[in-house]
Design a protein around this nucleic acid. Structure first.
Lengths: 170, 170
DNA sequence: GAAATATGTTAACGTTTCCTAACTAAGAAA
DNA sequence: TTTCTTAGTTAGGAAACGTTAACATATTTC
């Protein structure tokens, strides 16, 4: 009865992709046009028009016929959220796990739609934790992992070395 | 002409979910029935029947009318693959990142469909690396991260401490 | 064994998301 | 300005995946 419920409709992965593409286009070209979105997403133009109609309905996008595409404040917010997840995921896969960039990008594109807020937060902090490590570029334990992954062997950790030294002294 | 091409059709996330459910049902109840799959997946029975037809066509499932559901060897292989990804993801989210189990399960359910082989391998090794750590239950660096996440502070690493000690001695 | 219940299937339909073909509008070039 | 090209839209349809309603088959239970 008159109370307007903000339907924070959950967006489909597809719609999230469109939002994401729009921000990226605006970042790169200053404006977003159907054609660019279409090319970027590997999708035909009518698909873009269709998606824009849906997103307009939801109040996430502003788009007058034959005109540029823009995001509403809410659309922008959502788009940034998705973009952040994407970038975070790439950083994790590429930067920490050292997955090939191309593959990481593909994985991130899909995973960005399935990350809960809690997981996003934790993973982001994890990345921060690694990046701000005082060891230098890459923390020692991560270098250990790199070696472990390559060789299957783990450099003995300090504790053991110390123990061994002690043993030898006896 | 006549060469039978093994169409290793990529399965949709949905179909992967059905396969996964079937293995789980068989593990738990010894057999898989439409009703169980339906309940487990939160989907109506006709949807299950439909999916089973699709999977039968692809040679992944054996299902005679009104009978139990079974996996072919290939179906079993694919199902296990998905299940492995799922379990790996839960281990990572829960065991390493310490995401709440419920949320981790939800995330894993979605992410399991978007993990490339390379990422799967790396993440699996990473988990192994953590689990076989000689520090004990949880590696020291991970404990550091736990603290970092909670408090935002990072315990100073050994190198610095050593440096500081040296400084103090001067 | 017959009735009641549980299980499974079919048919018809809705939604989402993509496509092609054909059309319209806008912008550039002559 | 008229024409050519590019960009965008509309209409119509297909595939994937889910739903409900109605029907068919198994299984219990008395």
């Amino acid at each position: 009865m008159g109370i307007k419920v903000e339907k924070t409709k959950k967006l489909s992965a597809s719609m999230e992709d469109y939002l994401e593409a729009i921000v990226l286009m605006k970042q790169d070209n200053d404006v977003a046009r159907v054609r660019d979105i279409s090319r970027f997403m590997n999708v035909r133009k009518p698909s873009v028009t269709g998606a824009l109609n849906v997103l307009s309905e939801k109040g996430l996008v502003v788009h007058e016929r034959y005109g540029y595409v823009d995001l509403t404040r809410e659309g922008e917010k959502l788009a940034q959220k998705v973009l952040k997840k994407h970038k975070m995921m790439v950083k994790f896969l590429c930067g920490i796990l050292k997955i090939d960039h191309e593959i990481a990008a593909i994985d991130a594109c899909k995973m960005e739609h399935s990350i809960s807020p809690q997981t996003f937060k934790k993973l982001s902090k994890f990345i921060e934790f690694v990046e701000t490590c005082p060891d230098g570029e890459r923390p020692d334990w991560l270098k250990s992992f790199d070696r472990y992954f390559k060789t299957g062997r783990r450099p003995e950790c300090r504790v053991r070395q110390i123990k061994r030294k002690a043993k030898n002294k006896k």
